[in-house]
Design a protein around this nucleic acid. Structure first.
Lengths: 223, 223
DNA sequence: CCAAAAGTGTTTATAATACACCCATGC
DNA sequence: GCATGGGTGTATTATAAACACTTTTGG
């Protein structure tokens, strides 16, 4: 085997939609390097861990969320020779899509973490702004041709909530009526539940759960 | 820094279309482990190298091709704890799309390498069959919504040649007349050259070069 | 009743498919 | 001339966008 060895870390782009705004979970670093700067949550891969397991562990530590029902995928790896002043560290970026969660509580493991609107995020520690950009780009692309938008929603949700996800992630407005037909006519996208929900004003909306389908033909966005 | 360190390798899925068949470059391993088995070309990342540079170097060593004008992108990383019997090795898979090249010459650096039709590839060393599958899947997906098919072609090519790429990669038949209009009407996909080429029978075909466009709206394949 | 949001039906514009047809070459 | 592949025009069909309209709630 060769002598040039790397430390391997996983870093997480955890996205959600809070109050109509695409947001990501960031941590304020408490140790050098980049002490005091914002960074993606992450950590080193343990001796007997695979990459996705390591990312799932970090996700639980940061959000309390287990993977079940949520989305976690690998993004890309970053290993520029000078990306970490401590030496050669390869970071495997991951993307997680989660429903709207309460702000992380002080006193917990994730005391230093908080949600930030993606559009307002400035420079991050290491090359984490590149990883964040890759995660947002991937999320946008995947909404187009998969049913992944529903992973941003709670277990039961309305068509309006789902539409809000698309509008927040893409920054566009969609016609509620055409959107409704599009998603309800896509086999396997939405499973109607027995319940309706009344959101104050207007006619109560049907509640849905995620369906089995994962790919979307035809795609959601048309240029 | 942490004590659990990894060796980092890059492995390449190099795809081309030879005689209408999607094919990949594989090497017969000359050293343990997996001695004598087929594997993806690749090697360890050097001390001051970034990942893409390392992959580009391997590509040159295997094919003699420089990246200029060709396509090379990162696929994903693989780091299952038991994927290499020598210890913990993280492999960063890469995807290269290249035009049809002559069979590698005996006596060169790449003496042990040869082209194999993707459909006929059986089990590979390490977890390389997973990486190959990921590369083929990515290539198929990218043809759908990018102009990448042209990177399989020589610098100047006809619409028929380009259509042959799509048919080989997807295993479908496309209507030559509608295909022609589709690609010639997509702004920035093809740049006509001054020349035509006569391929024996039939009317000579216009020669094209790759255009500047990279994305394809609307996509090429419709379910 | 009115406002507001949910949900349906219908028209219209646009794009994809199928395929008839013409063009330019080799033999 | 005729076979062969290159290339264009057009009718048909499927799809998406626009929007009028009905439904069901709270006040």
């Amino acid at each position: 085997m060769r002598g040039n060895l790397f430390a391997v870390a996983v870093d997480l782009v955890i996205l959600t939609v809070r109050e109509g705004v695409l947001s990501t979970l960031l941590v304020r670093r408490g140790v050098a390097p980049f002490l005091g700067e914002l960074a993606l949550p992450g950590g080193f891969v343990l001796p007997h861990e695979d990459l996705l397991d390591s990312a799932a562990r970090e996700l639980v530590e940061e959000t309390g969320l287990t993977i079940t029902g949520h989305h976690l995928e690998q993004l890309a790896s970053y290993a520029a020779p000078d990306r970490d002043p401590r030496g050669r560290v390869l970071s495997v970026g991951h993307l997680a899509l989660v429903p709207d969660l309460p702000e992380p509580q002080a006193g917990s493991d994730a005391a230093a973490s908080a949600w930030y609107p993606v559009a307002e995020v400035g420079h991050l520690a290491f090359d984490h702004d590149r990883i964040l950009a890759a995660g947002v780009e991937r999320a946008r692309a995947k909404l187009e041709y998969t049913t992944l938008a529903a992973t941003f929603c709670p277990p039961e949700f309305t068509v309006s909530q789902l539409r809000g996800i698309y509008e927040a992630v893409w920054g566009t407005e969609l016609d509620p009526r055409n959107f409704q037909r599009k998603v309800t006519n896509t086999p396997g996208f939405l499973v109607p539940t027995a319940r309706k929900v009344s959101t104050g004003r207007g006619r109560p909306a049907q509640l849905f759960r995620r369906g089995e389908a994962t790919s979307l033909h035809p795609p959601m966005l048309r240029d």
